[in-house]
Structure formats: structure tokens, C-alpha cells
Amino acid sequence: MTKPLSLKRRNVAVLSSVWADGFESSILLSDLRDACPCAYCTGEEIMGQKVFEGFKTFAPGMNELERLQPVGNYGVQAEWKDGHSSGIYTWEMLRAVFEAKRLSEETLSNIDHQLSAGTS
């Protein structure tokens, strides 16, 4: 199983990762929040049957990552500014998000430019 060597917040909107196998990727924090694997966000199954579909939340601070807390040696727990913190991303889940939602260098440059313009 590949693990990340580093997970760093590039800015308020982007999380960057470097993995043990050399893979590097940056994603929007909003994509990480969208992929929250907790039961409240993705639903719940019992004996293979979906008993709860999961809620989609819109809340202030929902895409602002407060911290990533290591969980054992298999993943991280994300704490978001809106108070949501029940999502534990295993390394496999995290890698899948970083592969599927990878931002291009051009997009990353645009984000950096927009954010620096917004704060100047």
C-alpha cells in the first residue's frame, strides 16, 4: 500500500501531496470535502443494503481544512472549519481522490494568482 510522504496545504484552497511511489498531486480542498467518507456524508449500508443515503452539506467553512490528524498507520481524519470531523480517509481513499481530482499546473498557477490578487 502506497502512503503519502507529505500532505501540505499549499494555500487556503489547495492540498498538495507527495507519495512514496513518486506520485505527486494537488487537489482543491472542496474536492477533499466532497469525498468525505463518513456515514453522514456518504450514507450507510447494513448487510449490503443502503439504509441511509447521506446528506450533502452546505455550510460556512465547509471547505476550510483546520487539520489532518493521523489515524493509526492507515489514514488521516480531517477536521473542517464548520465543525465536521467524522471523516477518516484511508490512504487508498486519499490516493484515489488525489488521482481523480488532480489539478493541472496551469490551474494551480491561476489559483495562486487569484488568491494573491485577493489579498494584496
Binding site: 452539506t57 452546505f58 465543525g83
Partner: peptide
């Protein structure tokens, strides 16, 4: 469908 604590915001459910 759900019972528990929710944070401030809008919560949408697809039934």
C-alpha cells in the same frame, strides 16, 4: 433516515 448532531448549514438528502 437520520438521527444525530448536525452542524450549522443547509443539509440536503436524496431519498
Amino acid at each position: 433516515l437520520f438521527s444525530g448532531k448536525v452542524t450549522a448549514g443547509v443539509h440536503m438528502y436524496e431519498l
